[in-house]
Design a protein around this nucleic acid. Structure first.
Length: 406
DNA sequence: TCTGGGGTCCTAGGACCC
DNA sequence: TCTGGGGTCCTAGGACCC
């Protein structure tokens, strides 16, 4: 989907079309005030001048999506708000409306499945589609079917997308970026040298910032240069599995199937604080946040019908270092109190002298709740919790009125 | 006042078992 | 001069993706 989060907002606020708009994390506020102030008129009649601007933004979020006019200024996804403000202070900022975005996500995926049922979910705004068995899927190399999908999605949602058609997922993903927004690119096997090899290695889905840097250090910049390296040389530098995969990727080889169904491996909730917090000095506040995270993962598990065995925590220090700890229980659970107690034990195993910017709770080793033969024992009776649990208080206690004396 | 939130997969060492 | 070999599970960290 093209600039998905931003495009969804533009459907509500068509008056922002053509303007630099960024959708960003962080807090609501300015937009709530806006909606209240203009409660008497339709959203599409709120004057452009009334929208909050990046230059007025306070908070530590990143950009989720930027409209194409905003991208002209160099603003893009995953960029910190601070940096974006320097590049384009006049951009309009709106918060992510997850419910609305999810609604459109479900709709466009349903439209695709109606036409081409072999579809793989790749997150909220992206899918792989297998054209092989779709009637007419091979006409004009797939272009006809791609056009039909584009048109059907637009009619159902008013949103545009870009489609890449190729012999495999690896090349299709790259092809989808050739003609954005609202474009279609068909890439054949014989186009590898002319259309894929000139691209930077970072365009390969699976080569990220670290490997990109390392390759640059080895004087490999384009996919063609990567393809020219001996397989053994890549294996020596990047390990058996990754090195061999890189070589295959550079040669356009990828035999992964389009996977239509999968089970989740873990569920988690995490949050970055508005200001860095200290385990001792901000104990009540942290305790409340911690309990809330546990409650929310438990809710997620229950709502989706899963239970998990491995409870873990994640924290990020003010210097951005990350630490994780986890503990595997004897029994599966989706119980907020048990998750809270187990996570609390994990917390005791990390260094809490340094200030924290993020706290997260994760439940892994999932199983479907109904597939479970024996129900988990009630919370409080898990024998795998260390015995000390009952006697040592949690480092983070739940929120309560702060004491007057220090 | 840099740097979100929700995921997957891989690696590597150690425990433990047969 | 001695320390098997293979397999699985657990834990911590990190790369990468949307």
């Amino acid at each position: 989907m093209d600039a998905f989060f931003a495009s969804v907002e533009l459907l509500r606020y068509p008056q922002l079309k053509g303007l630099p708009v960024v959708i960003g994390g962080g807090r609501r506020g300015a937009d709530d005030a806006l909606l209240q102030r203009y409660a008497d008129r339709p959203l599409s009649r709120i004057p452009v001048e009334a929208f909050p601007l990046l230059r007025d933004y306070v908070g530590r979020g990143v950009i989720t999506t930027a409209t194409y006019p905003a991208r002209q200024f160099g603003v893009g996804s995953a960029m910190g708000m601070m940096k974006a403000t320097r590049l384009c202070p006049q951009a309009i900022v709106l918060p992510v409306d997850f419910d609305e975005v999810r609604r459109f996500s479900r709709t466009f995926k349903a439209v695709i499945r109606e036409i081409a049922p072999v579809m793989e979910d790749r997150g909220i705004d992206e899918v792989f589609i297998d054209f092989t068995e779709v009637p007419g899927g091979q006409r004009e190399g797939g272009r006809v079917l791609a056009r039909l999908i584009q048109k059907s999605i637009f009619e159902a949602t008013g949103l545009t997308c870009s489609i890449g058609v190729a012999p495999n997922k690896l090349i299709a993903k790259m092809a989808s970026e050739f003609d954005k927004p609202n474009g279609i690119s068909v890439v054949f096997e014989e186009d590898l040298a002319s259309r894929i090899w000139p691209l930077p290695v970072r365009k390969i889905n699976g080569i990220g910032p670290k490997s990109g840097e390392k390759l640059a250090g080895l004087h490999v910049h384009t996919i063609g240069e990567l393809a020219a390296q001996p397989r053994e040389w890549l294996v020596d530098n990047f390990g058996a599995a990754y090195g061999a995969w890189m070589h295959d990727a550079a040669w356009g080889r990828d035999d992964r199937p389009v996977v239509t169904e999968s089970e989740p491996v873990s569920m988690s909730r995490e949050t970055t604080f508005e200001r860095d917090l200290h385990a001792v000095r901000d104990r009540a506040e942290l305790g409340a946040i911690f309990t809330d995270l546990c409650t929310r993962v438990a809710d997620d598990l229950q709502r989706k019908g899963y239970v998990g065995k491995t409870i873990g925590i994640k924290l990020r220090y003010d210097d951005f270092r990350t630490a994780t700890r986890d503990h595997t229980l004897e029994h599966y659970t989706a119980d907020a109190a048990l998750i809270r107690r187990t996570a609390g034990q994990c917390l005791k195993r990390v260094d809490l002298r340094q200030r924290l910017r993020l706290l997260g709770v994760r439940v892994g080793k999932l199983a479907r709740a109904e597939a479970l033969a024996t129900p988990a024992p009630p919370s409080g009776s898990d024998e795998s919790s260390p015995r000390v649990a009952e006697h040592t208080p949690d480092l983070f206690q739940d929120a309560r009125p702060a004491p007057d004396v220090g």
